[in-house]
Each structure stands twice: as structure tokens, then as C-alpha cells.
Simulated assay, not measured.
Amino acid sequence: MAEKPSTPSQANPYGRVDEEVAISDERRRNRKKCFVYVLAFIVLQTCVFLIFGLTIMKVRSPKFRAIFLAPPLWSATFNTFEVATLNTNSSFSIKMIAELGVKNPNFGKYKYQNSTIEFYYLDMYKVGEAVVPRASAESRSTRKFEVTVDLSSTNVPSEVISGQFRSRPIIPLTSQSTVRGKVEIMKLMKKNKSSNMNCTMDINISSKNIENLTCR
């Protein structure tokens, strides 16, 4: 009698088990890969949001400064320059046009309101003021503009000016101002920010230049 041929399962009873184990291992490997991909995506997204928050969404204070021709000279011109250097009755009347700038370091527009700059002689006597008109500085740019100020010694005792002229032929001035406004980033966030400008300078009455300008 001829022998009955054996079936594959009879030849290897563990073949089906090995196949199921292989499939299970493959599924485990796929799950691990999926987990790694998801974890990498989460880390990447966290890094992106962190960089986004530390750069684009971080709001910095703008800077309000005088514009320099070449240090230490301020970009300013004089339409009127009348100075009397008498021993007992010194005075001055000066119309100055100066160039200023609002530097916006943010990734969003900075809109600021009207403001004024006050000028003082020897940090004591107010001798003039200038108007800073409302405007805006674009993202990461500097808005430049000119202001006109009439400097007059009306409120300064003439003997004080005469004493200064005898010491050195200059007009020592200080100026101070605060610009207030809002930084708007991607129309998602608005934050109030202000910038102060405090400067000291000397007007040389011989050369008609501004010297020794420092701002903070």
C-alpha cells in the first residue's frame, strides 16, 4: 500500500507558530517606529514653538535716539542762530532742526503717540521743547523724522550765561522725552511699550555744531 503524503503542518508542526511570532515582532517594530516618529515630531514642534516664543513673539522696548552724522556730531541744522556774548548781558535765540529716530527691534509694527522733547540749560532752566508727532515704526526698522525746536534763554539769568561763556563758548543742554505706544505682532498680540531718551550735548557757538552728545 502506498504511503499517504504528509501535509506541511505534519512535516513542521511549529511553522504556523513561527509565522505568528514573526508577524507579532514586525508589528512591535512598527509600533516602536511610530512611537519614535511621534516623539521626534513632538520634540521638533516644541523646539519650533520655543524659538518662535523667544524671537518672534518676544516683545522688546523700542529705542528713541538722536541720529548721528558721524560721532560725536548730531544730525542737526540751525535756521536761526543769534548769540550775544556780552560780559553782563549774554543771551541766545536758536531755531534748531534735528533728526531723530525710533528704532523698533520687534517682529511687529510699533505705533507710538504724540510726545514732546524738553530742553534744559545746565539741566536747570527750560529753554525749549519740540513735538514728536504720532506715527509708527515698521517691523525691525527705524522710523526717522525731523523736529524743530526754538531754544531761547528767556528763562535763564543772563549772568549765568555770561559766566558759562567766559568759561567756555558753548551752550550746555540736556533733553528728555518719553515715547509711548503699542507693539502689534501678527495681529495676535498687542503690548504697551515705552522708550525714554535722555541726552546731554553742547552747542559750540563758534562752529555752530552740536558736540559731546551722549544719550541713554
Rank of each mutant, 00 (worst) to 15 (best):
E3V: 11
E3D: 12
T7D: 03
Q10M: 07
R16P: 14
R16N: 14
D18L: 15
I23N: 13
S24P: 10
E26P: 09
R31T: 14
R31H: 14
K33F: 12
C34N: 11
C34H: 10
V36L: 14
V36W: 11
L39S: 09
A40P: 01
A40I: 02
A40T: 02
A40V: 03
V43T: 04
L44A: 09
L44Q: 06
Q45L: 07
C47T: 05
L50T: 03
F52A: 03
G53E: 07
G53I: 05
T55L: 00
T55G: 00
S61E: 13
K63P: 07
R65C: 07
A66N: 05
A66V: 07
F68N: 05
F68W: 06
L69K: 04
A70Y: 06
A70K: 03
P71D: 08
W74A: 06
A76I: 03
A76W: 03
T77Y: 10
T77A: 12
F81G: 10
A84L: 14
L86M: 15
L86F: 13
T88A: 15
N89A: 14
S91T: 04
F92A: 02
I94K: 07
K95R: 15
K95T: 15
I97D: 15
E99Y: 13
K103Q: 12
K109I: 08
Y110Q: 07
K111I: 03
S115H: 11
S115G: 08
E118A: 02
M124N: 01
Y125L: 08
V127K: 00
G128S: 05
G128Q: 02
V132T: 07
V132A: 10
P133F: 13
P133N: 15
A137N: 06
S141N: 08
S141C: 06
K144N: 08
V147N: 11
V147D: 11
T148D: 11
T148S: 11
D150N: 09
D150P: 07
L151A: 10
S153P: 09
T154Q: 11
N155Y: 06
N155H: 09
V156F: 06
P157E: 08
S158F: 08
F165T: 02
R166P: 01
T174H: 01
T174K: 00
Q176E: 02
R180F: 12
R180D: 10
G181Q: 08
K182Y: 03
M186Q: 01
M186F: 00
M186E: 00
K187Y: 00
M189V: 01
S195H: 06
S195K: 07
S195Q: 07
I205C: 03
I205G: 00
I205E: 01
N209H: 00
E211R: 01
E211N: 01
E211Y: 02
N212C: 06
R216V: 10
